[in-house]
């Protein structure tokens, strides 16, 4: 369209230059030759436009496929299935941990998880007052042996555990843990809820998400188990939680999901033992803060009331020396 218009303009200018005497003739010739002369450029223009359009679209498509798409370092299988979000009661703003669940969860950890997973950062004393009485925690600590300080001969002896000791690890060190578990290191669980994407949901899904048998087509290496929630889907840990595995002292039915839920809440506590106090302090801060905020809004309005309610009156000076059109007052008269 634009090309044709410009062609016409060029012709019109050429006609103007040839002079007034030949104007009529040239116009007639122009009119007669228009149909035959323009047929070839129209076809060429269409072809050029189509080719350039295809080139533009094609180069954009090529560029997008080459550089525009989101780059994934891992396949979906390697990412693992995203964990289902569950309505955890203890994750609500104003809710503490359910400490009975913490007690049950610690029982599950002690009887099931602790055979492979350590809980290095939790000392026995932190259990007192959160899920155990002093006597219970002391009794548990004394079941384990710890190294003493070197005595007078420089020998290190063994002593029963105290409340200030940390929960012992199942293996001496990471290498021993790897050697005992076919090369796979069972991670420390102290901060596991904070350490994994999805937190509580991920661990719960992982514990309860083992299928009866891997789906058709899934490649499971020997020594590994299939779990869709584990990144890579091949996990060294087999399914451990089965219905009735532990006996809860409070009579709660020990189903797989109940045990998983309890142990996840316990691991959430071990990762964030300060959560109860933090939430309690948090909403007190919000309460006092909102009062102070309302007060500051009131003070601002009080202080600004003088400025906001004042009335400005402007009396323009009398402009007597200027001519009428410059002075609006005189012009109006």
């Amino acid at each position: 369209m634009f090309a044709r218009t410009s062609l016409r303009t060029a012709r019109a200018f050429a006609n103007a230059k040839t002079g007034a005497t030949r104007t009529v003739v040239s116009q007639q010739r122009n009119a007669s030759s228009q149909s035959s002369a323009e047929s070839a450029p129209t076809w060429k223009n269409t072809a050029t436009l189509s080719a350039s359009t295809i080139l533009a679209i094609g180069s954009c498509t090529w560029y997008y496929t080459q550089f525009g798409r989101t780059a994934h370092a891992m396949t979906m299988q390697e990412e693992g299935l995203h964990a289902t979000p569950y309505p955890w009661e203890h994750e609500k703003f104003l809710k503490t941990y359910d400490h009975a669940a913490l007690r049950r969860g610690f029982q599950v950890y002690r009887e099931v998880c602790a055979s492979c997973h350590s809980l290095k950062r939790i000392p026995w004393r932190t259990l007192v007052g959160t899920m155990m009485t002093v006597d219970e925690a002391k009794a548990l600590a004394e079941e384990n042996e710890y190294d003493t300080e070197p005595n007078n001969e420089g020998e290190i002896e063994k002593r029963p555990g105290k409340l200030s000791d940390y929960i012992p690890s199942p293996y001496k060190n990471d290498e021993a843990a790897r050697a005992a578990n076919n090369g796979a290191l069972p991670p420390d669980l102290s901060l596991m809820v904070k350490a994994r994407h999805g937190g509580c949901n991920y661990i719960f899904s992982l514990l309860t998400g083992y299928p009866e048998e891997p789906p058709a087509g899934a490649v499971v290496q020997s020594g590994l188990n299939f779990n869709p929630y584990f990144p890579g889907t091949g996990i060294a840990m087999a399914r451990v939680l089965y219905d009735g595995l532990v006996d809860y002292e409070d009579g709660t039915p020990a189903t797989t999901s109940q045990m998983a839920k309890d142990v996840v809440e316990f691991l959430n506590w071990s990762a964030e033992p300060e959560m109860d106090d933090r939430k309690k302090m948090g909403w007190k801060v919000m309460a006092i803060g909102s009062v102070l905020f309302a007060l500051s809004v009131w003070i601002k309005r009080y202080k600004w009331s003088v400025v906001k309610t004042r009335k400005l009156q402007y009396n323009p000076p009398a402009l007597t020396g200027l001519p009428n059109k410059m002075n609006p007052r005189q012009a109006r008269r």
Binding site: L94, K95, T96, A100, G129, M131, M132
Partner: peptide, 14 residues
């Protein structure tokens, strides 16, 4: 709000 959830609510059992 947290009745029955805190340790002081359940510790009498133990």
């Amino acid at each position: 709000i947290n009745k029955g959830r805190q340790w002081k609510d359940i510790k009498h059992r133990y």
